[in-house]
Design a protein around this nucleic acid. Structure first.
Length: 377
DNA sequence: GAGCAATTGCCATTGAATTC
DNA sequence: GAATTCAATGGCAATTGCTC
Protein backbone atom coordinates (compact mmCIF):
# COMPACT_ATOMS: atom_id res chain seq x y z
CA UNK A 1 0.00 0.00 0.00
CA UNK A 2 2.98 2.21 0.65
CA UNK A 3 3.88 1.99 -3.03
CA UNK A 4 0.41 3.03 -4.16
CA UNK A 5 0.58 6.03 -1.83
CA UNK A 6 3.88 7.07 -3.40
CA UNK A 7 2.57 6.55 -6.94
CA UNK A 8 -0.48 8.65 -6.13
CA UNK A 9 1.72 11.32 -4.56
CA UNK A 10 4.06 11.42 -7.54
CA UNK A 11 1.14 11.63 -9.96
CA UNK A 12 -0.41 14.51 -8.03
CA UNK A 13 2.96 16.31 -8.06
CA UNK A 14 3.36 15.84 -11.84
CA UNK A 15 -0.16 16.98 -12.64
CA UNK A 16 0.00 19.92 -10.23
CA UNK A 17 3.25 21.10 -11.83
CA UNK A 18 1.92 20.65 -15.36
CA UNK A 19 -0.92 23.02 -14.41
CA UNK A 20 1.64 25.39 -12.84
CA UNK A 21 -0.05 25.25 -9.45
CA UNK A 22 1.84 25.50 -6.15
CA UNK A 23 1.14 23.31 -3.16
CA UNK A 24 -0.49 26.37 -1.57
CA UNK A 25 -2.79 26.79 -4.62
CA UNK A 26 -3.75 23.14 -4.53
CA UNK A 27 -4.32 23.20 -0.74
CA UNK A 28 -6.69 26.13 -1.21
CA UNK A 29 -8.57 24.41 -4.05
CA UNK A 30 -8.87 21.11 -2.19
CA UNK A 31 -9.97 22.88 0.97
CA UNK A 32 -7.20 21.85 3.36
CA UNK A 33 -5.73 24.50 5.59
CA UNK A 34 -2.04 24.34 4.73
CA UNK A 35 0.32 23.40 1.88
CA UNK A 36 2.20 21.10 4.27
CA UNK A 37 -0.67 18.65 3.93
CA UNK A 38 -0.23 18.60 0.16
CA UNK A 39 3.49 18.09 0.71
CA UNK A 40 2.80 15.07 2.93
CA UNK A 41 0.38 13.61 0.38
CA UNK A 42 2.85 14.11 -2.47
CA UNK A 43 5.56 12.37 -0.48
CA UNK A 44 3.25 9.45 0.24
CA UNK A 45 3.31 10.16 3.97
CA UNK A 46 -0.41 10.76 4.37
CA UNK A 47 -3.45 8.80 3.31
CA UNK A 48 -5.86 10.39 0.83
CA UNK A 49 -9.52 10.02 1.66
CA UNK A 50 -12.08 9.05 -0.99
CA UNK A 51 -13.66 12.51 -1.13
CA UNK A 52 -10.19 14.08 -1.32
CA UNK A 53 -9.25 11.80 -4.21
CA UNK A 54 -12.36 12.88 -6.11
CA UNK A 55 -11.45 16.52 -5.46
CA UNK A 56 -7.86 16.01 -6.62
CA UNK A 57 -9.14 14.40 -9.82
CA UNK A 58 -11.51 17.29 -10.52
CA UNK A 59 -8.99 20.04 -9.79
CA UNK A 60 -6.17 18.32 -11.68
CA UNK A 61 -8.49 17.78 -14.69
CA UNK A 62 -8.15 14.02 -14.60
CA UNK A 63 -9.94 10.92 -13.31
CA UNK A 64 -9.50 8.98 -10.09
CA UNK A 65 -8.58 5.96 -12.24
CA UNK A 66 -5.68 7.86 -13.81
CA UNK A 67 -4.47 9.04 -10.41
CA UNK A 68 -4.47 5.49 -9.05
CA UNK A 69 -3.26 3.71 -12.19
CA UNK A 70 0.06 1.93 -11.63
CA UNK A 71 0.92 2.19 -15.34
CA UNK A 72 2.60 5.42 -16.42
CA UNK A 73 0.10 7.81 -18.06
CA UNK A 74 0.55 8.52 -21.77
CA UNK A 75 1.85 12.00 -22.69
CA UNK A 76 -0.90 14.50 -23.45
CA UNK A 77 -1.60 15.40 -27.09
CA UNK A 78 -0.20 18.66 -28.43
CA UNK A 79 -2.59 21.62 -28.67
CA UNK A 80 -1.93 24.20 -31.37
CA UNK A 81 -2.98 27.64 -30.09
CA UNK A 82 -3.66 30.60 -32.34
CA UNK A 83 -2.63 32.86 -29.47
CA UNK A 84 -1.52 31.50 -26.12
CA UNK A 85 -4.33 32.41 -23.67
CA UNK A 86 -3.97 33.26 -19.99
CA UNK A 87 -3.74 30.13 -17.82
CA UNK A 88 -2.82 28.09 -20.89
CA UNK A 89 -2.11 24.91 -18.93
CA UNK A 90 -5.50 24.98 -17.18
CA UNK A 91 -7.36 25.67 -20.43
CA UNK A 92 -5.42 22.97 -22.26
CA UNK A 93 -6.16 20.43 -19.51
CA UNK A 94 -9.86 21.36 -19.52
CA UNK A 95 -10.04 21.11 -23.31
CA UNK A 96 -8.33 17.71 -23.45
CA UNK A 97 -10.50 16.39 -20.61
CA UNK A 98 -13.64 17.46 -22.48
CA UNK A 99 -12.33 15.77 -25.64
CA UNK A 100 -11.74 12.52 -23.76
CA UNK A 101 -15.21 12.66 -22.17
CA UNK A 102 -16.72 13.35 -25.59
CA UNK A 103 -14.93 10.30 -26.97
CA UNK A 104 -16.01 8.15 -24.00
CA UNK A 105 -19.64 9.09 -24.71
CA UNK A 106 -19.26 8.17 -28.37
CA UNK A 107 -17.99 4.74 -27.34
CA UNK A 108 -20.77 4.31 -24.78
CA UNK A 109 -23.25 4.95 -27.59
CA UNK A 110 -21.53 2.43 -29.90
CA UNK A 111 -20.93 5.09 -32.50
CA UNK A 112 -19.08 3.49 -35.37
CA UNK A 113 -15.75 4.99 -36.47
CA UNK A 114 -16.19 8.15 -38.50
CA UNK A 115 -14.86 8.90 -41.92
CA UNK A 116 -11.27 10.11 -41.85
CA UNK A 117 -10.84 13.87 -41.91
CA UNK A 118 -9.27 14.74 -45.30
CA UNK A 119 -5.50 14.94 -44.80
CA UNK A 120 -2.99 17.04 -46.68
CA UNK A 121 0.74 16.53 -46.37
CA UNK A 122 2.05 19.98 -47.23
CA UNK A 123 5.55 21.40 -47.30
CA UNK A 124 4.85 24.82 -45.78
CA UNK A 125 8.22 26.16 -46.89
CA UNK A 126 7.50 25.42 -50.56
CA UNK A 127 3.71 25.89 -50.69
CA UNK A 128 2.14 29.01 -52.23
CA UNK A 129 -1.31 30.60 -52.27
CA UNK A 130 -2.27 28.71 -55.41
CA UNK A 131 -1.79 25.46 -53.46
CA UNK A 132 -3.97 26.80 -50.65
CA UNK A 133 -6.73 27.78 -53.10
CA UNK A 134 -6.69 24.29 -54.62
CA UNK A 135 -6.71 22.71 -51.16
CA UNK A 136 -9.75 24.76 -50.09
CA UNK A 137 -11.59 23.78 -53.29
CA UNK A 138 -10.74 20.11 -52.74
CA UNK A 139 -11.85 20.17 -49.10
CA UNK A 140 -15.06 21.98 -50.03
CA UNK A 141 -15.82 19.26 -52.59
CA UNK A 142 -14.87 16.40 -50.21
CA UNK A 143 -17.11 17.72 -47.45
CA UNK A 144 -19.86 18.75 -49.93
CA UNK A 145 -20.11 22.25 -48.50
CA UNK A 146 -22.05 23.74 -51.40
CA UNK A 147 -22.40 27.42 -52.29
CA UNK A 148 -22.87 28.72 -48.70
CA UNK A 149 -20.20 26.78 -46.78
CA UNK A 150 -20.38 28.57 -43.41
CA UNK A 151 -23.84 27.23 -42.68
CA UNK A 152 -22.70 23.64 -43.28
CA UNK A 153 -19.10 23.49 -42.15
CA UNK A 154 -19.30 22.94 -38.39
CA UNK A 155 -22.21 20.50 -38.56
CA UNK A 156 -20.59 18.50 -41.36
CA UNK A 157 -17.32 18.13 -39.49
CA UNK A 158 -19.09 17.10 -36.28
CA UNK A 159 -21.54 14.60 -37.77
CA UNK A 160 -19.49 13.13 -40.58
CA UNK A 161 -15.95 13.21 -39.21
CA UNK A 162 -16.66 13.25 -35.46
CA UNK A 163 -14.67 16.46 -34.99
CA UNK A 164 -15.24 17.60 -31.43
CA UNK A 165 -16.05 21.28 -31.15
CA UNK A 166 -15.89 22.96 -27.76
CA UNK A 167 -16.42 26.60 -26.77
CA UNK A 168 -14.53 28.25 -23.95
CA UNK A 169 -13.75 31.80 -22.91
CA UNK A 170 -10.27 32.44 -24.31
CA UNK A 171 -9.91 36.16 -23.65
CA UNK A 172 -10.96 39.27 -25.49
CA UNK A 173 -8.14 39.39 -28.03
CA UNK A 174 -9.39 36.25 -29.73
CA UNK A 175 -7.84 32.84 -29.90
CA UNK A 176 -8.72 29.30 -30.90
CA UNK A 177 -6.97 25.96 -30.86
CA UNK A 178 -6.92 22.58 -32.52
CA UNK A 179 -5.65 19.19 -31.48
CA UNK A 180 -5.51 15.57 -32.57
CA UNK A 181 -5.41 12.73 -30.06
CA UNK A 182 -6.67 9.20 -29.45
CA UNK A 183 -10.11 10.81 -29.15
CA UNK A 184 -9.90 12.05 -32.75
CA UNK A 185 -9.83 15.60 -34.07
CA UNK A 186 -10.97 18.57 -31.97
CA UNK A 187 -11.34 22.33 -32.24
CA UNK A 188 -11.55 24.77 -29.35
CA UNK A 189 -13.33 28.04 -30.12
CA UNK A 190 -13.52 31.28 -28.20
CA UNK A 191 -17.05 31.74 -26.83
CA UNK A 192 -16.62 35.53 -27.07
CA UNK A 193 -16.51 35.63 -30.87
CA UNK A 194 -19.27 37.06 -33.04
CA UNK A 195 -20.91 34.72 -35.54
CA UNK A 196 -19.12 35.98 -38.65
CA UNK A 197 -15.73 35.92 -36.92
CA UNK A 198 -16.52 32.51 -35.44
CA UNK A 199 -17.09 30.93 -38.86
CA UNK A 200 -13.85 32.37 -40.11
CA UNK A 201 -11.92 31.16 -37.09
CA UNK A 202 -13.48 27.76 -37.41
CA UNK A 203 -12.42 27.45 -41.05
CA UNK A 204 -8.96 28.65 -39.99
CA UNK A 205 -8.70 25.80 -37.48
CA UNK A 206 -9.94 23.32 -40.11
CA UNK A 207 -6.79 24.19 -42.07
CA UNK A 208 -4.65 23.16 -39.09
CA UNK A 209 -6.53 19.87 -38.74
CA UNK A 210 -6.28 19.05 -42.43
CA UNK A 211 -2.53 19.78 -42.45
CA UNK A 212 -1.91 18.45 -38.91
CA UNK A 213 0.62 15.85 -40.02
CA UNK A 214 2.55 18.23 -42.28
CA UNK A 215 4.66 19.63 -39.46
CA UNK A 216 4.98 18.84 -35.76
CA UNK A 217 3.25 21.42 -33.52
CA UNK A 218 6.40 22.02 -31.46
CA UNK A 219 8.36 22.79 -34.66
CA UNK A 220 5.73 25.39 -35.61
CA UNK A 221 5.79 26.84 -32.10
CA UNK A 222 9.53 27.29 -32.11
CA UNK A 223 9.88 28.75 -35.61
CA UNK A 224 8.17 32.15 -35.51
CA UNK A 225 8.73 32.89 -39.21
CA UNK A 226 7.29 29.57 -40.33
CA UNK A 227 4.39 29.91 -37.88
CA UNK A 228 3.49 33.35 -39.27
CA UNK A 229 3.51 31.91 -42.78
CA UNK A 230 1.29 28.97 -41.77
CA UNK A 231 -1.12 31.37 -40.06
CA UNK A 232 -1.37 33.45 -43.25
CA UNK A 233 -2.07 30.25 -45.17
CA UNK A 234 -4.77 29.33 -42.65
CA UNK A 235 -6.40 32.76 -43.02
CA UNK A 236 -6.31 32.50 -46.78
CA UNK A 237 -7.66 28.96 -46.65
CA UNK A 238 -10.57 30.15 -44.47
CA UNK A 239 -11.28 32.91 -46.97
CA UNK A 240 -11.31 30.52 -49.94
CA UNK A 241 -13.34 27.89 -48.09
CA UNK A 242 -16.08 30.21 -46.81
CA UNK A 243 -16.19 32.46 -49.86
CA UNK A 244 -15.90 30.09 -52.85
CA UNK A 245 -15.00 31.93 -56.05
CA UNK A 246 -17.89 31.05 -58.39
CA UNK A 247 -20.88 31.45 -56.02
CA UNK A 248 -19.39 34.64 -54.60
CA UNK A 249 -18.72 36.31 -57.93
CA UNK A 250 -22.23 35.30 -59.06
CA UNK A 251 -23.75 36.89 -55.94
CA UNK A 252 -21.60 39.98 -56.46
CA UNK A 253 -22.13 40.42 -60.21
CA UNK A 254 -25.90 40.13 -60.06
CA UNK A 255 -26.03 43.10 -57.65
CA UNK A 256 -24.04 45.39 -59.95
CA UNK A 257 -26.30 47.99 -61.56
CA UNK A 258 -24.82 50.38 -64.12
CA UNK A 259 -21.26 49.59 -63.03
CA UNK A 260 -21.93 50.41 -59.37
CA UNK A 261 -23.04 48.56 -56.25
CA UNK A 262 -24.66 49.79 -53.02
CA UNK A 263 -23.04 49.61 -49.59
CA UNK A 264 -26.00 47.53 -48.38
CA UNK A 265 -25.26 44.95 -51.08
CA UNK A 266 -21.80 44.31 -49.62
CA UNK A 267 -23.27 43.94 -46.16
CA UNK A 268 -26.02 41.67 -47.46
CA UNK A 269 -23.52 39.40 -49.23
CA UNK A 270 -21.34 39.24 -46.10
CA UNK A 271 -24.36 38.22 -44.01
CA UNK A 272 -25.44 35.73 -46.69
CA UNK A 273 -22.06 34.00 -46.49
CA UNK A 274 -21.84 34.50 -42.69
CA UNK A 275 -18.50 36.31 -42.75
CA UNK A 276 -17.36 39.82 -41.80
CA UNK A 277 -17.48 42.58 -44.39
CA UNK A 278 -13.67 42.86 -44.11
CA UNK A 279 -13.29 39.20 -45.04
CA UNK A 280 -15.68 39.67 -47.95
CA UNK A 281 -13.91 42.77 -49.31
CA UNK A 282 -10.47 41.17 -49.16
CA UNK A 283 -11.79 38.07 -50.89
CA UNK A 284 -13.31 40.22 -53.65
CA UNK A 285 -9.93 41.93 -53.95
CA UNK A 286 -8.29 38.53 -54.25
CA UNK A 287 -10.82 37.56 -56.96
CA UNK A 288 -10.06 40.86 -58.75
CA UNK A 289 -13.64 42.09 -58.44
CA UNK A 290 -12.41 45.06 -56.39
CA UNK A 291 -9.19 47.05 -56.39
CA UNK A 292 -7.05 47.77 -53.33
CA UNK A 293 -8.21 51.40 -53.61
CA UNK A 294 -11.90 50.32 -53.47
CA UNK A 295 -11.31 48.18 -50.38
CA UNK A 296 -9.38 50.89 -48.53
CA UNK A 297 -12.04 53.49 -49.39
CA UNK A 298 -14.88 51.28 -48.14
CA UNK A 299 -13.15 50.27 -44.91
CA UNK A 300 -12.16 53.87 -44.27
CA UNK A 301 -15.67 55.24 -44.81
CA UNK A 302 -17.45 55.85 -41.45
CA UNK A 303 -20.85 55.61 -43.18
CA UNK A 304 -20.06 52.09 -44.42
CA UNK A 305 -18.75 51.12 -40.98
CA UNK A 306 -21.93 52.46 -39.30
CA UNK A 307 -24.22 50.58 -41.67
CA UNK A 308 -22.18 47.42 -41.14
CA UNK A 309 -22.25 47.70 -37.34
CA UNK A 310 -25.98 48.45 -37.24
CA UNK A 311 -26.75 45.03 -38.72
CA UNK A 312 -24.31 43.11 -36.55
CA UNK A 313 -26.21 43.08 -33.27
CA UNK A 314 -29.07 41.18 -34.87
CA UNK A 315 -26.71 38.44 -35.90
CA UNK A 316 -25.00 38.07 -32.53
CA UNK A 317 -24.85 34.51 -31.37
CA UNK A 318 -23.63 33.11 -28.08
CA UNK A 319 -22.73 29.43 -28.00
CA UNK A 320 -24.35 27.07 -25.49
CA UNK A 321 -22.32 26.23 -22.39
CA UNK A 322 -21.92 22.63 -23.60
CA UNK A 323 -21.94 21.40 -27.22
CA UNK A 324 -25.46 20.20 -28.08
CA UNK A 325 -24.12 16.99 -29.57
CA UNK A 326 -22.17 16.26 -26.39
CA UNK A 327 -25.29 16.76 -24.25
CA UNK A 328 -27.32 14.58 -26.61
CA UNK A 329 -24.74 11.76 -26.47
CA UNK A 330 -24.64 11.88 -22.67
CA UNK A 331 -28.43 11.84 -22.50
CA UNK A 332 -28.75 8.88 -24.89
CA UNK A 333 -26.09 6.93 -22.96
CA UNK A 334 -28.13 7.55 -19.81
CA UNK A 335 -31.40 6.49 -21.44
CA UNK A 336 -29.76 3.29 -22.67
CA UNK A 337 -28.66 2.55 -19.10
CA UNK A 338 -24.95 2.89 -19.94
CA UNK A 339 -24.36 5.61 -17.35
CA UNK A 340 -26.13 6.51 -14.10
CA UNK A 341 -28.08 9.70 -13.57
CA UNK A 342 -25.33 10.91 -11.22
CA UNK A 343 -22.72 10.37 -13.92
CA UNK A 344 -24.91 12.15 -16.45
CA UNK A 345 -25.00 15.13 -14.08
CA UNK A 346 -21.21 14.97 -13.76
CA UNK A 347 -20.73 14.93 -17.54
CA UNK A 348 -23.01 17.94 -17.84
CA UNK A 349 -21.23 19.69 -14.99
CA UNK A 350 -24.38 20.18 -12.94
CA UNK A 351 -26.02 18.83 -9.79
CA UNK A 352 -28.69 16.12 -9.69
CA UNK A 353 -31.06 18.79 -8.41
CA UNK A 354 -30.54 21.06 -11.47
CA UNK A 355 -30.21 18.25 -14.03
CA UNK A 356 -33.79 18.31 -15.34
CA UNK A 357 -33.71 22.08 -15.86
CA UNK A 358 -30.45 21.81 -17.78
CA UNK A 359 -31.81 19.01 -19.97
CA UNK A 360 -34.89 21.10 -20.76
CA UNK A 361 -32.62 23.94 -21.91
CA UNK A 362 -31.31 21.53 -24.55
CA UNK A 363 -34.82 20.34 -25.44
CA UNK A 364 -34.40 16.98 -23.69
CA UNK A 365 -36.94 15.43 -21.34
CA UNK A 366 -36.22 12.57 -18.95
CA UNK A 367 -39.45 10.67 -19.65
CA UNK A 368 -39.64 6.89 -19.75
CA UNK A 369 -38.64 5.62 -23.19
CA UNK A 370 -40.97 3.47 -25.34
CA UNK A 371 -40.36 0.76 -27.97
CA UNK A 372 -42.26 -0.38 -31.06
CA UNK A 373 -41.78 -3.55 -33.06
CA UNK A 374 -40.35 -3.11 -36.54
CA UNK A 375 -39.88 -5.45 -39.45
CA UNK A 376 -36.22 -6.09 -40.03
CA UNK A 377 -35.01 -7.85 -43.17
C1' DG B 1 -24.38 -5.66 25.39
C1' DA B 2 -23.69 -0.89 27.34
C1' DG B 3 -20.83 2.53 29.29
C1' DC B 4 -16.49 4.41 30.41
C1' DA B 5 -11.50 5.43 30.51
C1' DA B 6 -6.99 4.62 28.50
C1' DT B 7 -4.48 3.97 24.39
C1' DT B 8 -3.32 4.51 19.65
C1' DG B 9 -2.94 6.40 15.15
C1' DC B 10 -3.93 9.87 11.97
C1' DC B 11 -4.34 14.57 10.81
C1' DA B 12 -3.88 19.74 11.15
C1' DT B 13 -1.17 23.45 12.65
C1' DT B 14 2.91 26.04 13.52
C1' DG B 15 7.58 27.55 13.14
C1' DA B 16 12.00 26.67 11.34
C1' DA B 17 15.13 24.74 7.95
C1' DT B 18 16.19 23.58 3.33
C1' DT B 19 15.85 23.71 -1.63
C1' DC B 20 15.18 25.79 -5.98
C1' DG C 1 12.38 35.20 -2.05
C1' DA C 2 9.10 31.77 -2.90
C1' DA C 3 8.20 27.01 -2.61
C1' DT C 4 8.83 22.93 -0.27
C1' DT C 5 10.08 19.90 3.51
C1' DC C 6 10.90 18.71 8.35
C1' DA C 7 9.88 18.28 13.21
C1' DA C 8 7.19 19.12 17.27
C1' DT C 9 2.74 19.55 19.27
C1' DG C 10 -2.16 19.19 20.15
C1' DG C 11 -6.81 17.57 18.80
C1' DC C 12 -9.90 14.13 17.43
C1' DA C 13 -11.86 9.73 16.36
C1' DA C 14 -11.39 4.79 16.44
C1' DT C 15 -9.96 0.90 19.04
C1' DT C 16 -9.13 -1.74 23.13
C1' DG C 17 -9.80 -3.40 27.70
C1' DC C 18 -12.28 -3.32 31.80
C1' DT C 19 -16.42 -3.13 34.77
C1' DC C 20 -21.25 -3.64 35.54
Amino acid sequence: MENLRKILGRRITEMRKSLKLTQADLAKEIGVSSPQIISQIEQGKREVGAWELAKFAKILRTTTNTLLDIAEPKPLPEVLWRRIPEQEEIKKADFLKHCQEYHDLERLNDIAPYENVPREKMDFNKADYQDITQLAERISRDISLGARPAAMLERALEDRYGVKVWYMYLGKDGSAASTVGTFGYAILMNSMEALWRRNYNFAHEVFHLVTWYSEKPDVLRNDEQLWQKVERFAEFFASCLLLPGDPLTLAFDKRIKKSSINYTDFIEIAREFDVSTEALLYRLLNLRRLTRKDVDRLLGDPQFRDMDRSTMSKSWWSPPELPERFVRLAFIAYKKGRITRARLARYLNTSLFDLDDLLKEYGLNDREDCKIKVRYT
